[in-house]
Write a protein that binds this DNA or RNA. Structure first.
Lengths: 190, 190
DNA sequence: CGTATTTCTTAATCTTGATTCATTTTTTGA
DNA sequence: TCAAAAAATGAATCAAGATTAAGAAATACG
């Protein structure tokens, strides 16, 4: 649904009818099946993805050849490899659909054009970017102030329904420990 | 130097003479002595700080009653507790000068006003915010893909002159390990 | 359906970096 | 300039979580 995006934007800035049309004219809606890749390593990331329905994950393969998830995006979140997008250099990340999803994508050049035509989008993305930064800082704070076990329990209490949506090994990866350790603490809980 | 700020902004967006005047009319320059606090826990963070000279650190006291540094800011970096600034809730952080520094500060309401009068600042802060987010994500990537020792060596090779400026225990804190462990790997190096 | 693949669990052993406590070195400021 | 405080080092012991290696339980899908 195209409206999901512009409705989200309207929560932060005013949009006129013409703005909505302009935005909708440059984005594309994609239905992506579970396990589909939107980005793979060695490719330059050229798009921003807005999750209108479903769930995406961002991950890379670490030295021990395990998947390391660094981000999830669910409804109303943006997903991209901002590093690659900004620098134009090849990514080392995968972006993959965790569930069958609907994604609204916009290319970087189209977004730049939009900024000229709809200046209030600068503000929208400033605010969205700021929130992402705050969340990211909060995450670093948690990494440095809680043990893995504490962080697992904390995450559980904050996002009880999200953890139902994804396999446990993905949450273990996101939280930075092994599935085995996760089983251990879950067993303890009872 | 007031110019440090506007010169930095000009690297990202165009500013007219009048914009520069508007900006300079709402910011304040402060000379802060080493160890001075710009923010303390239980206070609401009301300002953004631009480091024109010197170095600031952002830290909190963790459960084990140790200082946990989450950010440094040197010349041309912004520093704030964005979480407290945005929510208006009390901070749990300290912002402290690591060296005698010069800081250009702007209050949140004044910044909001500025956004109305100088719209290109929206773009500037969007870009700056985006870079901060990318750096933050990169840091999370490093945390999850390197051992503490690797991260120390990596940080050393990336910022050899920065590590000269700060006490080692602060770097240990920032990297998330103890000063004792840091001594150990430094001793090993020879 | 029923088999193959994916996901989750258990347990034994091993490693990295924390903790504790003592000592040395460096820096600060009266 | 020298005493006090701050910062860095060292070594012994300890703990959280990784690794390895099975096996069990879910889920997907032909």
């Amino acid at each position: 649904m195209l409206n999901n995006l512009t409705n989200h934007i309207k929560k932060f800035v005013e949009l006129h009818g013409i703005d909505v049309e302009l935005i909708n004219s440059v984005v594309t809606v994609k239905q992506v099946k579970k396990k589909t890749f939107l980005l793979e390593p060695d490719h330059i990331c050229r798009d921003l993805y807005f999750v209108s329905k479903g769930c995406l994950r961002l991950y890379f393969i670490n030295k021990k050849l395990n998947e390391q998830i660094t981000q999830f995006a669910i409804e109303n979140w943006w997903m991209s490899d901002h590093g690659s997008l900004e620098s134009g250099k090849p990514s080392s990340y995968f972006i993959q659909a965790v569930e069958n999803s609907e994604v609204i994508s916009i290319s970087k050049p189209k977004l730049e054009e939009l900024f000229e035509k709809v200046p209030s989008l600068e503000r929208y993305f400033r605010i969205v970017q700021q929130r992402a930064f705050i969340a990211s800082q909060k995450r670093i704070e948690y990494i440095y102030s809680m043990s893995d076990e504490e962080r697992y329990r904390h995450f559980n209490s904050l996002f009880p329904d999200f953890i139902q949506r994804i396999p446990q090994y993905m949450l273990a990866s996101y939280l930075g420990f092994t599935p085995q350790f996760m089983s251990k603490i879950r067993a303890k809980k009872v």
